[in-house]
Design a protein around this nucleic acid. Structure first.
Length: 702
RNA sequence: UGUCCCAUGGUGUAAUUGGUAACACACCGGUUUUUGGUACCGACAUUCAAGGUUCGAGUCCUUGUGGGACAACCA
């Protein structure tokens, strides 16, 4: 069959170009180079899928190379975890290698550089060195040790190696150009003294090579054709090339570093440092906590490797900053599990239902397929008896006709079972519903083929038999952070946005067929979501994690704010705001502003308040702020319940990237000084640091 | 005050290298349904701005605007 035409990403374009201009396919070789100082996360998965994906596409080998040049931070534990994660994702590396394998070679090359007068020993303090280095805008100056003789350098380097010097006292630097525009070229450090035991080389070395000196040379040794890393290494490329060129044999391949944007996910953080903080401060229960964006966390949560690989594929790769919606990741796992997970019955929030016309000691076993729509899943028997549990949310005494579930005097089908009708509600002294009395239609058994069994009722509920059900612990997870990009604020700590309710543990009832589940097994709990068996689960104490819930259209219908009527006035303003956002022309903006102000007259404050609560794009924020700012609209701030949403809205707006939005937010506070106090600190910082001069000017006015 | 990178719907990516904006997710509307799931159908952007080159520009040039990276004996 002809291959489906797939568009290439920019890295594949580069490779295709290299291939077209003479590089032969057998020269292609890639590598994945983690530092073993932490656990892999979903961002690394992107890099893994990229490198190994390239390997698969071009049938080229991919090395796994641990970048272990800093013994202070690296441990064997991490090496093992990383290997496990890569294998789990389904990738096979060609060679398992370590930068530390090259310590001797690197050392030899360093001596060559010294001999060529291209490296020297510096024994100044780190402060002095930093000072001489200059800043991105000012050139550096040569230090006093720059012209030390080759002989002396060799002696000193030998002494460094032998451990004759203290940590921090001496370094080996490349001699390049202290005035270079690129900071990394201003005599970068090649070796530092570290009297630490290395997880592989033990105490053999007292000096360790730096990243830049190691990475390019390692790529060269392994003859990696394309060394792919993240964008922040872009400015290291010049140094990478310089180092490789110092030692390179003209007949051998010169590796090529290229950079892509790291993948960010909404509602989480993705740096090892921050993840480590979450673990150490006890906000989560370890690196493999199911709420963590680590590979091990996702695995424990119930994610499949297929879903993660798919996510990486459809996310793509580019050179621009990004925040990918977690909804995309969730889609990938739902899509996978929808095709593979057997469906079973479980009740998370039980309400007892008594079938009054069903004999007390009788039981029935219904045939229940693990998947009604796809063959090959098999089936099991589910027990039915006089008393069952249904979900509390599935019953209401009174409800409108949009509510398809059980209501008093209403009918509903029990999945795989009978149609039942609610006749009575039993309440306790507090007036809470504790039991429902129903009658069942004897002829309506699912699959029995009778007329009654074919009757259509609007709702179908999941349920379990009280006497047969198994108790199980179920862990319900929510996003770890309340904010879309918790680490994007300059002056706020990401931990401020931690969602205090990200884990809810409940006791639930599951159908008896789940008695013999194994750790890691995945199921769909019908109508609820996908769940897997947690590592802590035991046959006598079952524990399930909710991997992801099913799409809940009912919640949407129910929570839909009824007060928002489609408002034509707002609709007219939105495109104007969009144009305003894009316009850079003062006159045009003024015209647009006038139009918006004019139209704002007709917007009711009630509509506006509702919209404010759900605002989530630059355009929306801008439009609502402009409406708020037009003198024609008066929002009722005297009501307390209005204050908080507006305040929150302003708080977010003040920190948005778009300067128009920030300006309008500042402007709003200027007009309504009551709101100033809650944002005082932020405003103070903005009045000094904000990049937009209009904002600073406006801030001076109040 | 420097150098470099980036800019396509709400989000993430495409666009046969200059030929008339595509895919996925999200959202909204609908059909089917013994899961308010799934599946299916439909709606949703003229590509940051201005100018230039061209028969033709998301793509090339210029200027501007906005965002990001770079001053660890970390990687």
């Amino acid at each position: 069959m002809s291959e489906e035409k797939k568009s290439l990403n920019f890295l594949e374009h580069i490779i295709e170009e290299d291939l077209a201009s003479g590089l032969t396919k057998d020269k292609l070789r890639f590598r994945f180079p983690p530092e073993p100082n932490g656990y892999l996360h979903i961002g690394h998965a992107a890099s893994i899928c990229l490198n190994f994906g390239l390997g698969q596409k071009y049938n080229a080998p991919v090395n796994l190379r641990f970048d272990d040049t800093n013994p202070a931070k690296e441990e064997q534990e991490y090496v093992d975890a990383i290997k496990k994660d890569i294998k789990w994702l389904g990738f096979q590396w060609d060679k398992e290698l370590y930068s530390s394998d090259y310590f001797q070679q690197l050392h030899n090359w360093a001596i060559d550089l010294i001999k060529k007068g291209k490296a020297y020993i510096d024994n100044q303090s780190s402060e002095a060195i930093a000072k001489q280095k200059g800043t991105p805008t000012e050139p550096g100056v040569d230090g006093p040790n720059r012209n030390r003789s080759v002989e002396e350098n060799l002696v000193l380097f030998e002494k460094m190696k032998n451990g004759d010097f203290e940590e921090g006292s001496h370094i080996l630097r490349a001699k390049i150009d202290m005035q270079h525009v690129n900071m990394h070229m201003r005599d970068p450090i090649m070796y530092r003294i570290l009297k630490k035991s290395h997880h592989r080389t033990g105490d053999t070395w007292n000096i360790y090579p730096m990243y830049d000196w190691t990475h390019g040379e390692s790529d060269y040794i392994e003859q990696i054709s394309h060394s792919i890393c993240t964008l922040e290494f872009k400015s290291h490329r010049e140094l990478y090339d310089w180092y490789v060129d110092q030692i390179r044999d003209a007949n051998k391949l010169r590796p090529k570093q290229r950079e892509f944007a790291r993948r960010n996910l909404s509602y989480t953080v993705m740096s090892k440092r921050k993840l480590l903080q979450l673990v150490e401060d006890g906000h989560v229960n370890g690196w493999d906590d199911p709420r963590m964006p680590t590979i091990s966390g996702l695995r424990r949560r119930g994610y499949t490797p297929e879903a993660i690989v798919k996510f990486s594929e459809i996310s793509g790769v580019s050179k621009r900053d990004n925040v990918t919606d977690v909804a995309l990741l969730e889609f990938c796992i739902k899509d996978d599990l929808n095709k593979t997970a057997p469906r079973v019955l479980a009740v998370l929030n039980p309400l007892k239902v008594v079938i009054t016309n069903y004999p007390e000691n009788k039981e029935d076993f219904f045939d229940a397929s693990y998947n009604d729509y796809v063959d090959g899943f098999g089936s099991r028997k589910v027990p039915f008896s006089r008393e069952i549990y249904i979900e509390k949310e599935d019953f209401r005494e009174e409800a409108n006709k949009k509510f398809f579930r059980l209501k008093l005097n209403g009918e509903v089908r029990l999945k795989n079972g009978y149609i039942i009708k609610a006749n009575d509600v039993i309440k306790n002294k507090q007036g809470e519903i504790i039991e429902i009395h129903c009658t069942y239609d004897k002829d309506s058994l699912s699959g029995s083929g009778t007329e009654a069994s074919k009757r259509k009722v609007k709702g179908t509920l999941h349920w379990v038999s009280v006497t047969h059900a198994l108790k199980a612990e179920v862990r319900l997870y929510d996003r770890l952070f309340n904010d879309e990009a918790p680490d994007s604020y300059k002056d706020r700590d990401f931990k401020e946005f931690i969602n205090p309710n990200s884990l809810k543990t409940i006791e639930a009832f599951v159908e008896p067929s789940l008695k013999s589940v194994k750790i890691g097994d995945r199921f769909q709990f019908q109508r609820l979501g996908y769940f897997n068996v947690d590592n802590d689960s035991k046959p006598e104490q079952l524990i399930f994690n909710r991997t992801v819930s099913l799409k809940d259209s009912w919640a949407k219908i129910e929570n839909k704010p009824k007060t928002i009527q489609p408002d034509k006035t707002i609709e007219g303003i939105m495109p104007l705001a969009g144009k305003y956002l894009k316009s850079r022309e003062e006159d045009e903006r003024l015209t647009l502003l006038a139009q918006i102000n004019k139209q704002s007259k007709e917007v009711s404050s009630e509509t506006l308040l509702n919209l404010i609560k759900n605002a989530n794009s630059n355009k929306e924020y801008l439009a609502y702020l402009m409406i708020l700012n037009s003198q024609n609209i008066i929002v009722d701030f005297s009501k307390n319940e209005n204050l908080e949403p507006v305040n929150k809205f302003i708080g977010v707006a003040l920190q948005m990237k778009n300067s128009y939005v920030r300006f309008q937010a500042v402007n709003f506070i200027g007009k309504h000084l009551d709101f100033k106090t809650s944002h005082e600190d932020l405003l103070k910082i903005m009045s000094i640091e904000d990049k937009n001069t209009h904002i600073i000017e406006r801030l001076k006015e109040f």
